[in-house]
């Protein structure tokens, strides 16, 4: 099963994302901020990254930018969890190399649908 790196500084959101994806059979590794995610990404290999945008210790956009520089992460899908109000964030994310976004608030079904779609 594909493995997913789930990054969010909010424990409840992170747990919800991880729980949902694990329930669908994905391997999920959780990271609490950008720095944590970067070191976990370097240590492991993931098929998809789903990250919150606004986080302490490296935000989601910088994370995506740095991940794209890592070998093994040039082409994998990277999704941002963002709110509707973040139109400019979406664009900044795209410029950094994000594949797409999931708009908050989302429910587990919507999340899963998007992830399944991307991982085909």
């Amino acid at each position: 099963m594909p493995s997913i790196l789930a990054v969010d500084d909010s424990a409840s959101m992170r747990q919800m994302v991880a729980f949902t994806l694990k329930g669908a059979g994905y391997d999920v590794v959780e990271a609490v901020d950008g720095e944590d995610a970067l070191s976990k990404a370097k240590a492991g290999k993931f098929d998809l990254v789903v990250t919150d945008v606004n986080m302490p210790r490296k935000d989601g956009i910088s994370l995506i930018k740095e991940l794209r520089q890592l070998s093994g992460y040039q082409f994998i899908p990277m999704l941002m969890l963002t709110t509707e109000s973040g139109t400019d964030k979406k664009m900044q994310g795209k410029a950094a190399g994000a594949t797409g976004w999931i708009v908050k608030p989302f429910n587990p079904d919507q999340l899963l649908k998007t992830i399944n779609k991307v991982l085909g």
Binding site: D9, S10, S12, M13, M16, D52, N54, M55, P56, L81, T83, S85, K104, P105, F106, N107
Partner: peptide, 27 residues
Amino acid sequence: NTIFRATHSIKGGSGTFGFTEVAEFTH
């Protein structure tokens, strides 16, 4: 930004977990 981030997280979470009044207020 730290204050903003905390507000933003509460907004995101409350929206996701269905606490609409909180989400609207934090918005």
